[in-house]
């Protein structure tokens, strides 16, 4: 079966021409539908770059290779087109949007995606009901959803709001970038519960994390080690535990 996300020999650089610095260097990775893959790696390995290149952030130049979602080359698409195709990034540092209430923002996004896919807009009552249900799952205060996006939110609230958006938008492919950073153990559990609720045979996930801790709660099917811009090792869930015990140097030394 064709993998849902297929990355082949992907290279990417950041910065302007002469200053350009290669971050991804021949990265290949397959994530089939229904699976959760973790990407671990030391600081500066290119983890966040991978998430930005996949979602189309400007400032990154793809210098080689390909990435397809369900067989479609996503690297040529606008960020919003990728989103409409089902690509979702849970940001490591969620962005504040003053003056735009959460509900307005998410409803605008949802309808934009639906429109792009040729679907009808969601009605106001349906949206509010769905929002209420999701908020309940995540222990989110309904009042919070009336406030401007991420403005004055704590680190934990921001991460929970990312998961709220994910559950509202029901993307096909999820990228979680350092979702555990800044979370206390209770918030981590809530967030993990939300992510686990999204696990589905039709959905793929890429969980990017620096620490193994998150993987205690979100059990990955595969663990990949990213270093120097490429995947240098792939294993089962227990690879994460080994990395925790032996450190990246130990595992990397063995791979090199």
């Amino acid at each position: 079966m064709r993998p849902m996300l297929k990355i082949t020999d992907l290279s990417a650089a950041v910065g302007e021409d002469s200053e350009a610095k290669t971050i991804l260097n021949g990265l290949s990775l397959d994530v089939p539908a229904g699976e959760v893959h973790a990407i671990m790696g030391p600081n500066g390995a290119g983890k966040s770059t991978l998430s930005y290149v996949l979602t189309g952030r400007s400032g990154y130049e793809v210098t080689g290779g390909s990435a397809t979602l369900n067989g479609e080359n996503v690297l040529d698409m606008d960020p919003e087109t990728r989103a409409a195709k089902g690509m979702f990034l849970s940001f490591q540092y969620p962005v504040e949007i003053p003056g735009v209430p959460v509900m307005t923002f998410v409803r605008t996004a949802m309808n934009a995606q639906r429109k792009a896919r040729g679907e009808d807009e969601i009605s106001a009552p349906d949206f509010i009901k769905k929002s209420r249900d999701v908020a309940k799952t995540l222990n989110l205060d309904a009042e919070m959803l009336k406030r401007p996006v991420n403005v004055g939110f704590s680190g934990g609230e921001k991460k929970r709001l990312e998961i709220y958006q994910m559950m509202m938008l029901e993307p096909k492919f999820l990228i979680l970038d350092e979702t555990d950073s800044g979370l206390d153990i209770d918030a981590l559990k809530t967030v993990a519960d939300g992510v686990n609720a999204m696990r589905d045979p039709s959905r793929g996930m890429l969980v990017i994390t620096h620490y193994q801790r998150l993987l205690d709660y979100i059990k990955p099917d595969k663990v990949h080690v990213l270093a120097k811009g490429r995947i240098i090792k792939t294993g089962e869930a227990d690879l994460a535990l080994r990395l925790e015990k032996e450190g990246y140097d130990g595992v990397l030394g063995e791979a090199a």
Binding site: D78, E80, R82, V95, A112, Q165
Partner: peptide, 17 residues
């Protein structure tokens, strides 16, 4: 980028912001 990643087209994102 945050707004566009959620599916909102660039000009609409500017208007929203």
């Amino acid at each position: 980028f945050y707004a566009r990643q959620r599916g909102i087209a660039e000009e609409d994102a500017v208007a929203l912001l």
